[in-house]
Design a binder for these strands. Sequence first.
DNA 1: ATGTAAATGTTATAACATAACAGTAATGAA
DNA 2: TTCATTACTGTTATGTTATAACATTTACAT
Lengths: 165, 165
Amino acid sequence: MKNFDTVSLSFCGGSHDHGRCVITAIKAAEELCHSKGVRLTDARKRILELVWDSHHPVGAYDVLSKLSQESGKTAPPTVYRALDFLLEQGLIHRIESLNAYVGCAHPAEDHAGLFLICNKCGCAAEVHDETIDQTILTKASNLGFRPEQRTLEVRGICPDCQNPQ
Amino acid sequence: MKNFDTVSLSFCGGSHDHGRCVITAIKAAEELCHSKGVRLTDARKRILELVWDSHHPVGAYDVLSKLSQESGKTAPPTVYRALDFLLEQGLIHRIESLNAYVGCAHPAEDHAGLFLICNKCGCAAEVHDETIDQTILTKASNLGFRPEQRTLEVRGICPDCQNPQ
DNA sequence: ATGTAAATGTTATAACATAACAGTAATGAA
DNA sequence: TTCATTACTGTTATGTTATAACATTTACAT
């Protein structure tokens, strides 16, 4: 299985070049959309960038207000439509426990991430673990349940917030 | 570990005596509150009953409208305050992916259930599995993350909806 | 160029949740 | 028993998140 060690970088204190992080994500999104034959329009791309602005999940209305600042009056459906598109393409994830959205670090792959969300700084890290997936799927099918989507969110304290400088 | 086979009963088609199910839950709630020295007031008890009305998660405003019907005009804070209390005591769970609430089948115990929620009929079953818990906790702590709360929700098709009569 | 489907703009409103403050009821100490 | 304190409830207003419905524009294939 692919190594997702990079996730640890996305805890808030992990000093990484986030500009680069965004550029990579956008480029991956462009390629993915191209290969799928779907359109990553300017609006969608811009909203994806705004979601990727940080590793903190952002609310739809946060995106809306940034967008309004730069492009003049914008209405909620503009944002929600783009978010829905991005969700469908697996380019972002929705964090249900926060009503917020966060960029997906590996959009081309498996789509049931586990999110570790810091209650202090608000950052979110996406983790993949085959054992967790398997255990959950096995449990469900043992009960006769056919899984379609998963929401796995763990709230707590991230490493950086446990050991503040 | 305790056997939670009873969860399978809570899929919508499982014909069980739900009246009895509610009575049991309320009784357990009364005992639990008594033992904890917290007050299960009439309002709280009634709202717990309304949440337990079915195995489908119910929205706060569903509870509100039922309450308004039987007790005259009621405002949202009445409902939300009771729901918050019930959540704190572990008597109900919040289903984040539905913005809805559902009765907890074993309030005295461990509090990180896994919910299997049917996309067809809307019923929700609470499952506990030590392996899942352990795997997730281990994964988190390997990454230096200290878990506090968990939201584990699997949406899909329940056994009854897979094999309709 | 033009018909069609996809995307976006716009207005209004639905659905979910809380802030803030006033009033009432339960509880325990004097 | 009274009083003070705290917990609980009522009420009004408002904040936050999300979608319905319909008009308009844009992209694309023919």
